[in-house]
Amino acid sequence: MTVKQNIKVLIIEDEEPARVLIKHYLSGYSEIEVVGECADGYSGLTSIRELSPDLVFLDIQMPKLTGFELLEVLEKKPEIIFTTAYDEFAIKAFDLNAVDYLLKPYSQERFDAALRKGIGRIRSETREDNGRDALTGYRSEGSPPINRIVVRKGNGISFIPVDTIQYIEAEDDYVMIWYDDGKALKQQTMKFYESNLPKDEFVRIHRSAIVRIDQIRRIEPYGKDTYRAILKNEKRLPVSRSGYKNLKEKTA
């Protein structure tokens, strides 16, 4: 007979009463061990790295780092159960391959169902790797443009304000973000940035390039039907035919 290992649970949630409730709902499960509680996204990230929990209850709207941003910079993802007050994020959470999505306030029954699903996933032999590629383009249509991009920096994280981004280049499965203070590599799609950066400030000029419109110094012809953008810092970027059309529409 194999002794089942305890399941390590971490609660990341900025409101105290909400944490109390989760602990209360968990109190009936002897196999669950609450290894920590965090009141903001950043300490949540640190705790996940230190404690490597099996299951995380994760709020979305939190100080310092939102639940989604936390997942963006996490290398090894535990199973996630989102807890949030409002369902504008439901589709995103689903795309992120989360175990479940609890809408506050929730009942013990609803909580139990989510928890059972989580335990099931953890106990199952074939644990899927949690969405390395699921983490793309999860923002729903019509959400306001993003204002910052979170990137890993050494052991920590840093934020790139969207206002400082000059251009973004595609590099295989990654994108290189060039901004005023340097550059940063991030696993994300061009499509994501095309649809989530402010549309009046950025333009997709090529399959492999998105550029801030006011960074472009001039456009010159380059071969048949294609062009080249020369930026203020003398950087040259390819412009495809459809990219040229996009650019003309935005600057008209």
């Binding site: 007050a85 506050k104 306030p105």
Partner: peptide, 18 residues
């Protein structure tokens, strides 16, 4: 803001226990 309403209800739900 619906967040306010639902978060408050969640707090109440928690307080009924404690």
């Amino acid at each position: 803001n619906p967040h306010f309403l639902f978060n408050s209800l969640n707090s109440i739900s928690s307080l009924t226990i404690t």
